[in-house]
């Protein structure tokens, strides 16, 4: 049974003569991470701002748990948590003040446990401007989830973060989803979307060009599966053997790389051939086309 938390239908928004979003529709189910992808200027931020009640749509319908964001801001306030793209807090506000400030406006007690969980507890008296980008992002996330909102909006949450902070934030997002939160993740980081999102919608010039799971989206493209093989005696480098379903072959250092439309027969033939030549497999990797490759394919077509 459908457990719809958020729905957008024929949503349209223009700024003067410029149409930023042109009649898009999508739905987000409870407990999923939904990736809203697109290049800069695709309409992601406009869509989020209208869902957050910051702007009013020019047309169409938006509902978050049956609440209309543009007409019922009071009801919306405790349903959503928002980590803004730019972590917007007054520069001289301390971590502790920020937690007290926002929790008070949401009518809940300050969540110092969240600050501990996000390793911010020792920075209670540190001013926002003195925090690193990673810590600012963590604080913004702590403030967004402090009132336990069922719907969370994350706008480029890992932009500017180092690998460790990024990984920690991904773990936290997964934990939140497992605890029942629904997350709308706006990003142009395809690797992040592919790793984190259960469903994605790709926006281009204000329109949804495709939706589905990352696997469904990559499967619908013309992209080939990449098979990389390394053997002890590099027998594949020496003979120009042609394998089934292979469309392109490359040799890069000790690896022979094959782009295939059907990885099963290709891999099977490769293993048989290497064995028959008296060589030994050292490494074999099969990689399906990435969401990034599919995204580039779509954007180039558009």
């Amino acid at each position: 049974m459908s457990d719809k938390v958020l729905s957008v239908k024929d949503f349209r928004k223009a700024y003067g003569g410029f149409v930023a979003v042109d009649g898009i529709s999508f739905e987000v189910q409870r407990g999923e991470i939904f990736g809203l992808l697109g290049p800069n200027g695709a309409g992601k931020t406009t869509t989020l701002e209208c869902l957050e009640g910051i702007r009013k749509p020019d047309g169409g319908q938006m509902r978050i748990m049956n609440v209309d964001p543009s007409h019922e801001p009071r009801k919306l306030q405790n349903l959503i948590g928002v980590q803004l793209q730019t972590s917007s807090l007054p520069w001289n506000m301390t971590v502790g003040e920020a937690m007290k400030f926002f929790c008070a406006y949401h009518g809940v007690a300050p969540r110092y446990d969240l600050l501990e969980r996000l390793e911010l507890k020792d920075l209670l008296n540190s001013q926002f401007s003195k925090l690193s980008t990673g810590l600012q992002r963590r604080l913004a996330l702590a403030l967004a989830i402090a009132h336990n909102p069922p719907m969370l909006f994350l706008d480029e949450p890992t932009a500017g973060l180092d690998v460790g902070s990024r990984s920690e934030l991904h773990m936290l997002m997964e934990e939140l989803r497992d605890e029942g939160s629904t997350i709308l993740l706006a990003t142009h980081d395809m690797a992040e979307a592919e790793k984190m999102a259960d469903q994605v919608a790709i926006l281009m010039k204000g329109k949804v060009v495709t939706t589905g799971t990352p696997r469904e989206i990559t499967a619908t493209g013309a992209g080939f599966t990449k098979v990389s093989v390394s053997t002890d005696q590099s027998v594949l480098h020496k003979n120009g053997k042609v394998f089934p379903a292979v469309r392109q072959t490359l040799f890069k250092e000790e690896y022979a790389i094959y782009y295939t439309t059907d990885p099963g027969p290709t891999v099977s033939a490769l293993i048989d051939y290497v064995s028959a030549q008296g060589d030994k497999l050292i490494d074999l990797r099969v990689e399906r086309p990435s969401l990034e490759e599919r995204f580039l394919e779509i954007t180039n077509k558009e």
Partner: peptide
């Protein structure tokens, strides 16, 4: 400065 930095937007979202 607060308006330009987007602080009022975060205030609005959080019900200030």
């Amino acid at each position: 400065e607060l308006r330009e930095a987007g602080v009022f937007r975060s205030f609005k979202i959080n019900g200030v």
